[in-house]
């Protein structure tokens, strides 16, 4: 990690607490905006009534439909941000992201196959399928990317991920073409969005997200050791393989479950950990929770922006994050010296 040289390992505790307050405040503000802003203009009294659960008028109904959407955006953003931070930690690679590594496409292919061929529609099995797909792809891409000289360099991982993602996507297309009846729904899901969320649909994912979160927090200290290099970590008494497996499992749980509900949303997992390293340094015990909070804020902000930019229609959040994220990706690539990459 080159950041270690330029960014202090620990920001002073006070600065970190300050940032914590700032990020929390931003998240709350964005959440409020997400409930208040949408295609339909609503007044303050309607918002308050909608928050109390009244659906008497159209405006109140609109507000109460925005609440689960906002909650989903928070959950999805937190999971993706956390998952990105974990992946970057495990692979020690600044470009790791569920989208770039093709993990999202793997989950998408698994879901599409399950829907088209095995008539699976229960949310519970949907999630398992997505997590299995994400896991298989992650292992596959990492295995290919780390073959040969120099181990898993960022370039090899990114190429292996992109190419795998293209190949898997053409399989997705092959499946979708045979099933015209479900192609529309699948194509909409493919873009990645949080629109049309309901609490009922979110329910089944929560245990997976909770498990992922717990595993992530438990592996924070281990990731700190891994950052020193495998030999050093082993020398410090860390069981390297176990630490990697734990963090990777948690990352896969988080992004697989999120993809099952929202569809593939890219780049949140890439941007957020970088921003957070600037704010709080490279200590994973701080970095991981911060990535979750910042990820939530970023996704809610992107969702709100998508509603404002394309009025009266909406821009799916997956498109907004790609347009913010891709330039950011390029910026990281330009910033680092090629040898580091």
């Amino acid at each position: 990690m080159t950041e270690a040289a330029t960014i202090p390992l620990r920001s002073p505790a006070r600065a970190r607490l300050l940032w914590l307050v700032v990020v929390l405040a931003a998240l709350l503000l964005l959440g409020a905006l997400s409930v208040a802003i949408g295609t339909r203009q609503v007044g303050l009294d309607d918002i308050l009534a909608g928050l109390r659960g009244e659906v008497g008028t159209i405006a109140q109904a609109a507000v109460s439909a925005r609440i689960p959407r906002t909650v989903l955006a928070v959950l999805a953003g937190a999971s993706l941000g956390l998952s990105g931070a974990l992946m970057q930690g495990v692979t020690r690679n600044p470009l790791a992201d569920p989208g770039i590594l093709g993990v999202n496409t793997g989950a998408a292919l698994a879901v599409v196959v399950a829907v088209a061929w095995f008539q699976i529609s229960a949310a519970q099995s949907f999630i398992w399928v997505a997590i299995l797909g994400a896991g298989a792809t992650a292992v596959f891409v990492y295995a290919i990317g780390s073959l040969g000289r120099g181990g898993a360099t960022p370039l090899k991982l990114a190429l292996a991920g992109t190419a795998t993602s293209i190949a898997l996507y053409s399989l997705v297309v092959a499946v979708m073409l045979t099933r015209g009846d479900i192609a529309g729904g699948l194509q909409a899901w493919q873009i990645g969005g949080v629109g049309g969320a309901t609490f009922a649909r979110m329910g089944p994912v929560l245990p997976f997200l909770a498990a992922g979160l717990l595993l992530a927090m438990a592996s924070a200290r281990k990731l700190n050791s891994l950052a020193l290099g495998d030999e050093m970590a082993a020398g410090l008494g860390e069981r390297v393989a176990l630490a990697r497996a734990m963090a990777a499992l948690s990352a896969i749980l988080l992004c697989g479950a999120t993809t099952a509900v929202c569809g593939p949303i890219g780049f949140v997992g890439l941007i957020v950990p970088h921003l957070c390293r600037l704010l709080v340094g490279v200590d994973h015990r701080w970095l991981l929770p911060f990535s979750a909070l910042t990820g939530a804020a970023l996704l809610v902000a992107s969702d709100v922006a998508g509603r404002i930019i394309a009025r009266p229609a909406e821009l799916d959040v997956g498109i907004v994050t790609a347009f913010i994220g891709a330039p950011f990706f390029i910026w990281i690539v330009r910033r680092q010296r090629v040898r580091d990459l």
Binding site: L95, G99, I100, P154, L155, A158, L159, T162, I191, G266, F267, G318, I319, A322, F323, G325, A326, P327, F329, I330, V333, R334, V338, L341
Partner: peptide
């Protein structure tokens, strides 16, 4: 660097 930048551009074009 060119390949990596290209991968970023590719993601943007897809979306």
């Amino acid at each position: 660097r060119l390949i990596l930048v290209g991968i970023g551009v590719q993601a943007m074009m897809q979306s």
